[in-house]
Amino acid sequence: MSVKVRPLGDKDFFAWLGLFEGYSDFYESELTDQKALQVWSWIIDKNNSLDGAVAVNDAGDFVGLAHYRTVPRTLSGSMGLYLDDLFVTPDARGAGVGHALIVFTKAYAVARGLSQIRLITAADNETAQALYNTVGTRTDWVTYEIDA
């Protein structure tokens, strides 16, 4: 499968929404219209740090997405990139789509002089971990969440 990865644009909402629904379903997270519209508004707002890209196959179908944002790296005194979301449709998995999205994300970071890309995935998402092991280094950091 051949894919082209490109930034999300204003006219991509409905195709992006299908991917974001798939991503939400994968992580068993309820996606309401309000949540979807909020995330989309962040992506298209040039004053918000959240940005996104989409992988499109030869038929013009959206088969993957990536959401990422710049973040300060206080200990290095630099800016980095946090890859929040990476999703590939089930029928496109194993065809290099996830890798293509990561390559695009890395080029985005390099073009902006960002020092590092960080990402997390679920402990049981072995498919994602296998991909991430080919492009990065697994860290020893343990992640916690505190509800506010």
Results as ranks from 00 to 15, higher is better:
Gly80Lys: 03
Val39Ser: 05
Pro90Met: 04
Asp84Ile: 05
Thr70Leu: 11
Tyr23Gln: 01
Asp91Trp: 10
Leu17Cys: 04
Gly96His: 09
Gly77Asp: 09
Trp42Val: 01
Thr139Pro: 12
Asn47Tyr: 13
Gly18Ala: 08
Ala92Gly: 11
Lys106Met: 13
Leu114Ala: 11
Thr121Trp: 10
Trp141Arg: 04
Thr137Ile: 13
Gln129Thr: 05
Ala100His: 03
Leu101Lys: 01
Arg138Ala: 15
Leu37Tyr: 12
His67Gly: 00
Ala130Gln: 10
Met79Ile: 14
Asp25Leu: 15
Phe62Val: 03
Phe13Thr: 01
Ser115Phe: 06
Gly80Leu: 08
Ala92Gln: 02
Gly113Gln: 05
Val103Gly: 05
Ala92Tyr: 12
Ile102Phe: 15
Asp61His: 08
Leu37Phe: 08
Ala15Trp: 00
Ala66Val: 15
Ala128His: 11
Ala123Trp: 04
Val103Pro: 01
Val142Ala: 14
Ala15Gly: 07
Ser78Gln: 13
Gly22Trp: 06
Ala130Cys: 05
Gln116Met: 12
Ala128Glu: 05
Phe20Glu: 01
Asn133Gly: 11
Leu81Pro: 05
Val142Glu: 12
Gly94Trp: 12
Leu119His: 01
Ala123Val: 15
Gly52Ala: 01
Tyr27Lys: 06
Glu126Ile: 13
Ile120Met: 14
Ala109Pro: 09
His67Glu: 04
Asp58Met: 02
Asp84Tyr: 05
Val56Ser: 01
Gln116Asp: 08
Trp16Ala: 00
Trp16Asn: 00
Val63Met: 02
Leu19Val: 07
Glu28Gly: 10
Ala95Asn: 04
Asn133Asp: 15
Ala107Gly: 15
Leu114Ser: 05
Lys46Trp: 02
Gln34His: 09
Asp147Ile: 10
Ile43Ser: 08
Gly9His: 04
Val63Gly: 06
Tyr27Pro: 12
Leu86Met: 11
Leu19Arg: 02
Ala122His: 13
Thr139Ile: 13
Val56Cys: 06
Ala36Thr: 02
Val54Cys: 13
Gly136Phe: 12
Val71Trp: 09
Asn47Lys: 14
Val110Pro: 07
Gly113Glu: 04
Arg93Ser: 09
Ile117Val: 15
Gly94Lys: 10
Ala109Lys: 03
Gly22Met: 08
Thr74Gly: 11
Leu83Glu: 02
Gly18Phe: 06
Ala109Asp: 10
Val110Ile: 15
Leu119Phe: 15
Leu114Ile: 11
Gln129Ser: 08
Ala122Tyr: 08
Asn48Cys: 09
Tyr27Leu: 13
Leu86Trp: 05
His67Trp: 03
Ile120Glu: 14
Gly80Glu: 02
Ala148Ile: 13
Gln38Thr: 14
Val63His: 02
Arg138Glu: 14
Phe87Leu: 05
Phe20Gln: 02
Glu21Ile: 14
Phe87Asn: 00
Val39Asp: 00
Ile102His: 04
Asp84Asn: 07
Ala100Pro: 03
Ala111Lys: 06
Phe26Tyr: 15
Gln116Tyr: 05
Pro7Lys: 00
Gly64Lys: 03
Ala92Cys: 14
Gly98Ser: 08
Met79Thr: 09
Gly94Tyr: 12
Leu114Met: 14
Gly80Pro: 06
Thr89Arg: 03
Trp40Val: 07
